[in-house]
Each structure stands twice: as structure tokens, then as C-alpha cells.
Amino acid sequence: MRILSLILALSFFLSACETVKGVGRDVESAGEAMDDAIND
């Protein structure tokens, strides 16, 4: 039971990391778009 709990916790942690990474890319893209709009 302890191993199953550890595996589930690890899978949630890894999926959360991927979600945060995706949000970071989206924010970076939006920032670059605003920067381009301001500089043009």
C-alpha cells in the first residue's frame, strides 16, 4: 500500500511539473508578443 501511494504521489508531482512548464511557456510567449508590439 505504501508503494502504491508513493507511485501515485510521484505521478501527480510529475504531471504538475509539466503543467507549470506549459504555463511558463505560455507566459513567455505572451511576454514576447507584447514586447514585439511595443517595439514596432
Rank of each mutant, 00 (worst) to 15 (best):
residue 27 V to M: 11
residue 15 S to P: 00
residue 7 I to M: 04
residue 21 K to P: 00
residue 15 S to W: 04
residue 8 L to V: 11
residue 20 V to Y: 05
residue 35 D to I: 00
residue 17 C to M: 12
residue 30 A to G: 10
residue 3 I to M: 02
residue 35 D to V: 00
residue 5 S to I: 11
residue 37 A to P: 02
residue 37 A to D: 07
residue 21 K to Y: 02
residue 28 E to D: 06
residue 9 A to D: 02
residue 27 V to A: 11
residue 38 I to H: 15
residue 12 F to R: 14
residue 21 K to E: 00
residue 4 L to G: 10
residue 12 F to Y: 06
residue 22 G to L: 10
residue 31 G to A: 07
residue 30 A to F: 11
residue 24 G to M: 01
residue 18 E to H: 11
residue 3 I to E: 03
residue 17 C to H: 08
residue 22 G to I: 04
residue 30 A to W: 09
residue 2 R to H: 11
residue 28 E to C: 04
residue 32 E to P: 01
residue 25 R to I: 07
residue 27 V to W: 08
residue 2 R to W: 07
residue 10 L to E: 02
residue 10 L to S: 07
residue 17 C to F: 12
residue 39 N to E: 06
residue 8 L to Y: 09
residue 26 D to C: 13
residue 31 G to E: 09
residue 18 E to Y: 12
residue 21 K to G: 00
residue 22 G to N: 12
residue 32 E to I: 07
residue 20 V to D: 01
residue 1 M to Q: 08
residue 27 V to D: 05
residue 1 M to Y: 04
residue 1 M to C: 06
residue 18 E to T: 08
residue 32 E to Q: 12
residue 26 D to I: 14
residue 33 A to K: 15
residue 34 M to S: 14
residue 22 G to Y: 11
residue 26 D to H: 14
residue 33 A to R: 15
residue 4 L to M: 06
residue 17 C to I: 13
residue 3 I to A: 02
residue 13 F to C: 02
residue 37 A to W: 08
residue 22 G to K: 13
residue 22 G to R: 11
residue 4 L to K: 10
residue 35 D to W: 02
residue 26 D to Y: 14
residue 5 S to N: 14
residue 36 D to E: 10
residue 38 I to P: 05
residue 28 E to R: 12
residue 33 A to Q: 14
residue 34 M to E: 12
residue 26 D to R: 15
residue 35 D to K: 09
residue 15 S to D: 01
residue 37 A to E: 07
residue 34 M to H: 11
residue 14 L to D: 00
residue 19 T to S: 11
residue 24 G to R: 04
residue 4 L to P: 05
residue 2 R to A: 14
residue 21 K to H: 01
residue 4 L to T: 10
residue 28 E to T: 04
residue 25 R to G: 04
residue 18 E to Q: 14
residue 36 D to M: 11
residue 10 L to P: 01
residue 8 L to N: 13
residue 14 L to H: 00
residue 20 V to F: 03
residue 23 V to G: 03
residue 10 L to K: 04
residue 19 T to V: 11
residue 4 L to Q: 10
residue 33 A to I: 10
residue 8 L to G: 07
residue 39 N to Q: 04
residue 40 D to N: 12
residue 33 A to C: 07
residue 38 I to Y: 15
residue 6 L to R: 11
residue 39 N to L: 02
residue 12 F to P: 01
residue 19 T to C: 12
residue 8 L to R: 15
residue 18 E to G: 14
residue 11 S to H: 06
residue 22 G to D: 07
residue 29 S to C: 05
residue 32 E to W: 02
residue 37 A to V: 04
residue 38 I to L: 15
residue 22 G to Q: 08
residue 40 D to L: 05
residue 23 V to Y: 10
residue 14 L to G: 00
residue 12 F to V: 06
residue 28 E to V: 02
residue 39 N to K: 08
residue 15 S to G: 05
